[in-house]
Design a protein around this nucleic acid. Structure first.
Lengths: 203, 203
DNA sequence: ATACTATTGGCACCCGGTGTCGATGGAAAG
DNA sequence: CTTTCCATCGACACCGGGTGCCAATAGTAT
């Protein structure tokens, strides 16, 4: 289940022709174009041309045009996994999830403007909204596995999977709200989402 | 935001050439093929041929191949809206949502086998999982609008949108579990999802 | 018979994505 | 320096989904 890499992963073996670019630079070039012209108004050929490579080669760095904006999703998954693992064992599950999700979505101030653009692209382009559903699946599983362990159930149990779905829902809702107003703070919105759900669900 | 219709909607005006099929029959023919051969192994041309129409005409009944399996989604939306409206005003929001979501997903026994096949197709075909994300948006909004009214906030407020996301998450999780075991009851799974979330979130 | 009109379906075309295969260019071995 | 090796590259052909265009079709109304 590889996300983004480049031909045959990055073995440091220096044999064969050198790669002509990296997934990272290709990703930046593509995202730049998406932000400027809109995802649907940029063809893969446009990106390839801007990067000075062939159209065919693009698909050796990204499995699809849709996969470009998320970049290295596996890294995000690892990040989320790490946040969850870092939560002390004596914290209740609700708080553990809340803390981890908030922490996962904390970014240094200088990255915020770029994050806004990236998420604007990801959450307002129908094609990408759809495609992202496939990526979210893996993220939910990371949450589900954690919740399962804490609650003493299987990682594929209904309870664990539902918690994964709910955490994702709270995150997405926070992002959508966040995109509506420059002044809002993402972490606060996520926290508010968790607390709102606690309030409504507790009656 | 039309989903499925057919050329120029169904005005009963009997002028011009008669339509050669309906979205409903076309949908049944297509779904049958998807279930038999798998979504990715059926081309639009296959469906058109099986229905005795041209490929071009298919796209006048469904905006895309992906839209076929959901059928008349607007009808589902209306159904969900009706369930929510039918819940007495003195019921707490949590219970109102739970009741409505459960009721929305209640089907007569004879439809269950077919529903299983349809949902199997919708939830296990990556292309359709992705595309469905676009449809879910409208469903969540129906939930959000209801929650907003009950809670005295705007339909686009963060709280209302989050409740929409969470209800959807609980539903999807229940469906995935349901598909794993023939003997499970969908309504019970959804109920369990709501109660589990109440339990975990209340601490 | 004629006029009118919505639907149809064929055609050309765009774009994303894939299989194939020869060309490329760089490191290591002779 | 030349040869060998080989991963990457890029061109080409091809497939399938989706769209604009337009003439042909098949009904009703006059």
């Amino acid at each position: 289940m590889q996300t983004v890499v480049g031909p045959v992963a990055q073995r440091s073996r220096p044999v064969g022709r050198a790669r002509s670019t990296t997934a990272d630079t290709l990703g930046r070039i593509g995202l730049e174009l998406f932000i400027q012209r809109g995802f649907d108004n940029v063809t893969v050929e446009d990106i390839a041309e801007a990067a000075g490579i062939g159209r065919r080669t693009f698909f050796r760095y990204f499995p699809s045009k849709n996969d470009l904006p998320w970049g290295d999703f596996d890294a995000l998954l690892c990040s989320m996994h790490a946040r969850l693992a870092a939560v002390p064992a004596d914290i209740p599950v609700f708080d553990a999830l809340r803390e981890a999700v908030i922490d996962f979505n904390r970014f240094p101030a200088e990255e915020i403007p770029f994050l806004r653009q990236r998420m604007e692209c990801l959450l307002k382009t129908p094609t990408l909204v759809a495609h992202s559903a496939l990526r979210y699946r893996a993220w939910r599983q990371v949450v589900a596995d954690f919740a399962a362990e804490r609650l003493g159930v299987s990682g594929s149990s209904h309870l664990a999977m539902t918690l994964g779905q709910v955490c994702l829902g709270i995150s997405l809702s926070a992002y959508e709200e966040w995109l509506e107003d420059e002044r809002l703070d993402l972490a606060e919105l996520i926290d508010q989402g968790f607390c709102d759900m606690r309030r409504v669900f507790a009656g």
